[in-house]
Amino acid sequence: MSTEKPAQLHWFKSTYSSDEGGECVEVATDGTAVRVRDSKERGGPQLAFTRGGAWARFVTDLRQDGF
């Protein structure tokens, strides 16, 4: 996992998210990583997971913990 920010990314929210606030995250991909940020703090920190292994483990852990 890295916190380095690339220059330009196309961010998107889940179709389950709304524009009415709440706890939403946005996701973007680049050539090497899947990046995650808080949709309310777009200029804030980002998490970056390597494509494949680290991202898959992260998503699996979220699903198992019921988030």
Rank of each mutant, 00 (worst) to 15 (best):
F58D: 03
R51W: 02
A48G: 09
G22F: 04
F67T: 13
E41L: 15
G52Y: 04
T60V: 09
W55A: 02
T3Q: 12
D38T: 04
V27P: 01
Q8W: 07
L9F: 01
A56L: 10
G43I: 05
R57V: 11
Y16R: 13
T60L: 11
T3K: 10
G31A: 12
V25I: 11
Q64Y: 09
S14Q: 06
K5C: 01
R63P: 04
H10D: 14
L62F: 09
P6T: 02
T15E: 08
D65T: 14
V27W: 03
D30I: 02
A7I: 06
E23T: 15
G31R: 10
V59Q: 05
E26N: 07
E20H: 11
A48K: 00
G21K: 06
L9K: 00
E23F: 14
A33S: 15
G43Q: 11
F49P: 00
V34P: 02
Q64A: 15
T3D: 12
R51S: 04
M1I: 07
Y16W: 11
S17W: 00
T29N: 10
F67A: 14
A54T: 11
D38W: 03
S17C: 05
P6L: 02
T50V: 13
L62K: 09
K5F: 01
W55R: 00
P6F: 01
R42L: 11
G44S: 08
R57M: 11
G22A: 07
K40A: 13
T60Y: 07
K40I: 04
E4K: 06
D19K: 12
L47K: 03
S14D: 07
A54S: 15
V59S: 06
Q8G: 09
T50R: 12
V36T: 06
Q8K: 12
H10Q: 15
A56P: 02
T15D: 09
E41Q: 15
Q8P: 04
W11C: 01
R35Q: 08
A33E: 05
T50S: 14
A28N: 03
K40D: 10
R63F: 08
Y16C: 08
R42H: 10
E23V: 15
L9Q: 01
F49I: 03
S39W: 04
Q64N: 13
T29E: 14
A48R: 03
T32K: 13
D61P: 06
G66A: 08
E20Q: 13
H10Y: 11
V59K: 07
A28K: 02
S18A: 10
R63G: 13
G66N: 07
K40C: 08
G22M: 06
E20D: 15
D65R: 15
A28I: 03
P6G: 01
E4C: 03
K13T: 13
K5T: 06
A48H: 00
E41R: 15
K13N: 10
E23Q: 12
L9A: 02
R63H: 13
L47Y: 03
Q8C: 10
S39A: 14
D65V: 13
A48D: 00
K13G: 08
D38M: 04
E20P: 01
